[in-house]
Nucleic acid binder design. Structure first.
Lengths: 130, 130
DNA sequence: CGGTATCCAGTCCGATACTG
DNA sequence: CAGTATCGGACTGGATACCG
């Protein structure tokens, strides 16, 4: 349940559809990095969950409108808050990650120094036994 | 970025840690269905992103406290809204899914009937040629 | 345009075993 | 208690090809 809506692509699609209904290719262009397969999949899921409607216009070339349902619209407030949060705090997170990775690297280096030291001591002991 | 925090387990962990700091096993017990592996993974990610602090108490038996950082706390409002939304609308979604699956089954059945009819017609035509 | 079908590599994740 | 290591199966997701 949570994993369906708390999913990268679904969040983006819902955020985009709030302004107005969109066609398949419009969504595809607006969402950077999504594959045709994933967009189709995501839209089917959202449709199944009653969050978006899919209306086919039998014209040539064919057009399909995707639109938020009333239920989907209620989600938008929440989604928007989440997306906004990530946008405003992405610098903080990037900094935290950099700091964490520094610490991790330092600890690893320290552990290696200690291991080398233990190794040196062990060699000395062995030399003494000979 | 979004996928890290918009992830099932992360959301639940943050929601739980808002009340008070918790130990590893407390979280494990409170989050139904999470494996030891996923909890450890999730906590390390959250720690790396600066959302959670990890403090080790070198006692016997060892204890580790997990606590929301200030940054993590700012996320809680948003998370809470999302979790609440899923709780209040899970019935709507279940209904929508049931309806969708019914429609899909009906369409499939209809397609099969039509195929059978085409087949019957084709057989008649072939019989006429003989 | 708006998809579906298929294949395949990469990733996720649970189960299990082991450690300090 | 609080993890890490490893392994195998499920799932994800991209690339490609084809259809109405």
């Amino acid at each position: 349940m949570l994993d369906r809506i708390a999913d990268k692509w679904s969040l983006l699609v819902i955020a985009l559809l709030d302004k107005r209904s969109l066609h398949f290719t419009e969504l595809r262009r607006m969402i950077d990095g999504i594959s045709q397969r994933m967009l189709a999949r995501t839209l089917r899921h959202l449709e199944r969950d009653g969050l978006v409607t899919r209306t086919v216009h039998p014209t040539v070339p064919p057009r399909v409108d995707y639109e938020l349902t009333a239920l989907g619209a209620t989600l938008h407030q929440t989604i928007r808050a989440l997306v906004t949060w990530t946008e405003t705090h992405q610098n903080d997170i990037a900094a935290a990650r950099a700091a964490y990775d520094m610490r991790a690297a330092a600890e690893q280096a320290q552990a290696q120094r200690e291991a080398a030291e233990r190794d040196a001591i062990a060699r000395e002991v062995l030399a003494g036994h000979r």
